[in-house]
Amino acid sequence: MNEYLQLIAAFSGSAGFALAYNFRGKKHVLTAGLGGAAGWLCYLIVLHASGNEYLAGFAGTVLCSFYSEAAARFLRTPATGLLIVSSIPMIPGASLYRCMQHLLRSEMELFEREGAYTVLFASCMAAGFVFSGTLIHLFRSTNKKTE
């Protein structure tokens, strides 16, 4: 139940950010929202299958990248915006916040733990962006050559 709610919230959260970043047109906003939910679904599935949050973050980001690239082709917009917005539910904003909160309360042990998690998780997401970005670039350049 909790996870279904999370999926809906991921959808509306991503769609909300899409609106805040001035996406034009219902189609764009809905696509961005769906991307957010799809990314979070992928995160949850991999998390349950492997029990590893970092791997789940990586997989979710890779899915978001391919989704945004495909949707961007379809909607004829740059993929960047879609990618940023659809990966927002996974972005470790909450743990970045908790980490700084621990620092301010000088709870050093908790700060270290939360800080390490934040940096590692963000790095896994960044690795996901780079990995899929490279693959997409590869596809594109081979496509151009064959044309």
Binding site: S87, V119, F129
Partner: peptide
């Protein structure tokens, strides 16, 4: 917090690195 915290910027900065 999610509106104000620069989570996207943080993640993208690591990607840039």
């Amino acid at each position: 917090v999610m509106v104000f915290i620069p989570g996207v910027k943080f993640t993208n900065s690591i990607r840039d690195l």
